[in-house]
Amino acid sequence: MTGRIAELRGEAEAAIAAAATSAELEELRVRYLGRKAELPNILRGIAALAPEQRGPTGKAANQARQALEALIGQRAEQLAGGELEEQLQRDVVDVTLPGAPPQPVGHLHLLTATRREIEDVFLGLGFRIAEGPEVETVYYNFDALNFDVTHPTRGRADTFYVNDDVVLRTHTSPMQLRAMEAEPPPLYIIVPGRVYRRDSDATHTPQFHQIEGLAVDEDVTLADLKGTLLAFARAIFGRDREVRLRPHFFPFTEPSIEVDVSCFMAHVPGERCRVCKDTGWIEILGAGMVDPNVFGYVAEYGYDPERIQGFAFGMGIERIAMLRHGVPDLRLLYDNDARFLEQFG
């Protein structure tokens, strides 16, 4: 009997090794280990054998069965691996086709994207963001910002009036005063927002957006203003940028400066630079040290001009966005043509 078992085992081992497919292997499993197969029958028939044969036969049959089961398992894994490999090789797609379904891509408007970027630079420099009303009193928009009564900007040719005392703010500067009234120094804020002037051409729209900055402390200097704006210019226009300060005049700062940033375009000899007109510098904003007269209007809130000082600056978001992205006409920003919008943000 043990001879038959060894024979069966040998035959099965050879067949398993030769099996080429999982199906063939399954057939062999049924043939050698299935319910009607010989080896299990031997095992089931152990009890009918002579007592002295039961031990050796049972042992041999069990060993043979376990060995065959293990072999079939191993072979099954081998075959499955190969078959999966084959299947994967057949299962080929054109990976250059688009994703499905296509996911829509939204966009922030260029003005919002630019504004957020500038905001983030100043957040990093320790400024908070303050916001104020767009419809503003003449007091905050002009009077308390030290605008002379004859200053041309006050005129109805330049400024939108709601009535004699209320205007659409012409700049974000009124918020300087509102912020100082609300909170004592030290004060470090920027004020983004929509402003209005009666102007309309390729570089002026009657509404546009500004970001105001205000830093007030005991010892804030004009040199600090320069450093702050240099950091801003490098963050927005590139790390190699320089800034240039030119003296200027604004009613609410003294001294007042205009700030240029060095041109960020690659200059080609013989071709006129469209951005800086070959001057090497681009005007980006106005700034200065807060005029003591302005502090005079908020002295009771802790802004005694003999004890504190500060700087302020204001820039146009549209201008920065147009410069950076080469947008030639301001009005494109307000047409909101989808083909324009999807280029940015």
Partner: peptide
């Protein structure tokens, strides 16, 4: 004095000491 002294060439670029100021979105 500043404009004749040269606000551009003669001025260092420093940063405020910003005591207590924290830049954070509300």
């Amino acid at each position: 004095v500043a404009r004749l002294h040269g606000v551009n060439d003669q001025l260092p670029a420093t940063l405020p000491r910003r005591r207590g100021a924290i830049g954070v979105l509300a």
